[in-house]
Design a binder for these strands. Structure first.
Length: 427
DNA sequence: CCAGTACACAC
RNA sequence: AUUGUGUGUACUGG
């Protein structure tokens, strides 16, 4: 019985055939195309790669099936990090992104379900919200000391031999093993020459996040074996304990485990044993009694700065344009942080937007030529009179009136060309 | 179910 | 000038 279950989920020696399956490749190509990424070292764009593959795919496919495909080195791209440092990306060329994606899909389908229930990063159907909710549950249950472990340049430090040994333990297809090893060893093009790499998995490769989870799955299993409550998102690992004393002990012991068994270095400066309130996890911080999750102060500052940035240049652009810039940001931000109680700053900001927009619409409308006839038609004679007098008091008294709202909607809102997304802001 | 836009988090 | 990957959410359209 158990055997048939493993047979169903186990990988076969024909895994490369599955990778090269038509349907799998089409799904992989769609993903690569959707991401609209830039070319790798060969300078081939996605559109060009499409034509290239039409011609050369049979050749590449047979190389893959023979187990001697050689990926190109990755392109080095440096992007600034929020904290001022730089993130070194390794961008594979389009064809290699396609192949990695195809491998990822096949491996992930059967491997991912075996990962820990406490691992949330880079996994289908799992989110940062779920990780934070689980963390909050632990704190609410009285595990209100957190060991926050941060790994030093985790992707760049992944040990190839340890990773490959974990992969080889489950993958019998030698061609797939060789291909993954080739991706790891492809090197990076810097200053016109290829520099070989002996550790790390390229940040930018579709397979990299999944590989990182394979390595840290050992950590998950070890923590579970010791009976700890924990949540992990990528290299951000939080363990929840009942006392500070136990926390220090676990911190030291897990640090040792990571360096000895996985050859990974814990960033002692960024790691800590503390109360949940003092730490941030995925942009949130949890109250010490676990009763609520809050937006971490740092994330809130970032939000305020962004709002200032958009609203300060109001001199140069119309209010209409400013609202247009602001609204998508607010919606997106709420999508993530609305997960916890809405902070007052956001409610205040929304009220401010409503006032400004209503005033703006009012002015537009007041200057329109058909306002009096429209008001009379609506039977709001008093309001019509205050419009005629140009009195702003009429606005505040009447702007909430259903008939006025209706008039604004029909005669001003649409004529200004504001997207319908602003409707709730006005209401 | 399939496209497109935006935001957030992680590396 | 250059900007990769994964995941999640919200909106629009078919």
């Amino acid at each position: 019985m158990a055997k048939s279950a493993t047979e169903n989920s186990a990988f076969t020696e024909q895994l490369m055939e599955e990778v090269c399956d038509r349907e799998n490749l089409e799904r992989a190509w769609k993903r690569v195309k959707r991401n609209k990424g830039s070319p790798g070292v060969d300078g081939m764009t996605i559109d060009e790669a499409k034509a290239f593959l039409r011609q050369h795919w049979p050749n590449i496919r047979s190389q893959l099936l023979d187990g001697n495909y050689r990926p190109q080195p990755v392109k080095r791209v440096e992007i600034p990090k929020p904290d001022g440092g730089v993130r070194k990306l390794g961008v594979p060329c389009v064809v290699d992104r396609l192949i990695q994606q195809a491998v990822l899909q096949v491996l992930q389908e059967r491997w991912d379900p075996t990962f820990s229930e406490h691992s949330f990063g880079f996994r289908p159907g799992r989110s940062a919200h779920q990780a934070v909710a689980q963390a909050q549950r632990y704190v609410a249950d009285g595990y209100n000391v957190v060991v926050d472990l941060d790994l030093e340049r985790f992707f760049d430090r992944v040990n190839h031999d340890i990773l490959m040994s974990r992969v080889a333990a489950r993958i019998p297809d030698k061609r797939v093993l060789k291909l993954i090893r080739a991706f790891l060893n492809a090197g990076v093009l810097e200053d016109g020459l290829v520099r070989p790499v002996d550790e790390g998995t390229p940040q930018g490769g579709p397979l990299s996040p999944f590989l990182s989870n394979i390595v840290l799955d050992d950590l998950d299993k070890e923590l579970a074996r010791r009976g700890h409550r924990f949540c992990r998102y990528a290299d951000d690992c939080n363990i929840y304990l009942r006392s500070h004393h136990a926390g220090e002990r676990v911190r030291a012991s897990i640090s040792r485990f990571l360096t000895d068994k996985l050859r990974l270095k814990v960033n002692e400066a960024k790691s800590a044993v503390a109360r949940p309130e003092e730490r941030k996890f995925l942009g949130f911080s949890i109250a010490n009694d676990g009763s609520q999750r809050r937006i971490a102060p740092k994330a809130l500052d970032k939000f305020k700065d962004r709002i200032r940035e958009i609203t300060c240049r109001t001199r140069g652009i119309s209010l209409q344009q400013m609202i247009a810039d602001l609204t998508p940001y607010l919606i997106g931000w709420r999508g993530y942080f609305g997960f916890c109680q809405t902070p007052r700053v956001l409610t205040n900001l929304e009220a401010w937007i409503r006032r400004r927009l209503r005033l703006y619409l009012w002015r537009q409308w007041r200057n329109g030529h058909n306002r009096f006839t429209e008001l009379r038609r609506l039977g709001i004679a008093k309001f019509a009179a205050s419009v005629a007098a140009g009195s702003p008091t009429g606005l505040w008294r009447m702007s909430g009136h259903p008939a006025v709202q209706h008039a604004l909607r029909n005669h001003v809102f649409d004529s200004l060309g504001l997207p319908r997304i602003f409707m709730p802001v006005l209401a």
